Simulated scan of single mutants.
Amino acid sequence: MIRDELSGWFASLEKQGREGEREFFSSAWNGDTGYTIDRISRGSIHVPACCVSILGGIPPARLRAYLSDVLKDGPSNDGLMQRFQLLVYPDAPGEWKYVDRPPNHRAIDRVTHAFRRIVELDCECPLILKFTPDAQELFQEWMGLLECRVRADDLSPAMQAHLAKFRV
Rank of each mutant, 00 (worst) to 15 (best):
L67I: 13
V168I: 13
P60D: 14
P157F: 13
Y66H: 00
G74P: 01
E147F: 07
P133T: 11
T36R: 14
W29P: 00
A158K: 10
P59D: 14
H113N: 07
M1F: 03
F139Q: 01
R42V: 04
I58D: 07
P93W: 09
K15Q: 08
A28E: 03
Q85Y: 07
M81P: 02
T33R: 10
H113C: 08
W142C: 05
S12Q: 04
E21G: 06
C148F: 08
V99K: 02
R116H: 08
S68A: 07
H113Y: 07
F24Y: 03
P126D: 04
R39K: 07
L86I: 03
V47W: 12
L155M: 01
G144I: 00
L71M: 12
Q85H: 00
Q140C: 13
N104F: 11
F166V: 07
R3T: 10
G8M: 11
T112C: 03
D38M: 11
L87T: 08
H46G: 01
D69R: 07
P90D: 08
L87V: 00
A152N: 00
E141G: 13
C125H: 11
E19Y: 06
W96I: 06
L127N: 08
C50M: 11
L121Q: 14
L121C: 05
P133D: 09
D69C: 02
F84Y: 00
M159H: 14
L67E: 13
F10D: 06
A28T: 01
E137P: 02
E141W: 14
R64F: 12
G43T: 07
S12T: 03
S44Q: 15
V99T: 04
G79C: 09
V47A: 15
G34S: 02
K165D: 02
P126Q: 06
S156C: 03
L121S: 10
E23T: 15
E21V: 04
I2T: 09
D100P: 08
G8T: 14
D134V: 10
Q85N: 00
G34N: 02
G94D: 10
A92M: 02
M143Q: 15
Q82V: 09
L86N: 03
S76P: 05
Q16S: 14
T112M: 09
I2E: 08
R22C: 09
Q140W: 13
G56T: 14
Y98V: 12
C51A: 05
D78I: 15
A92K: 10
M81D: 05
T132N: 02
L71Q: 11
H113R: 15
M81F: 13
I45G: 03
P102L: 00
R42H: 10
F24R: 05
P75D: 05
A161P: 05
F115M: 06
G34K: 01
K97E: 03
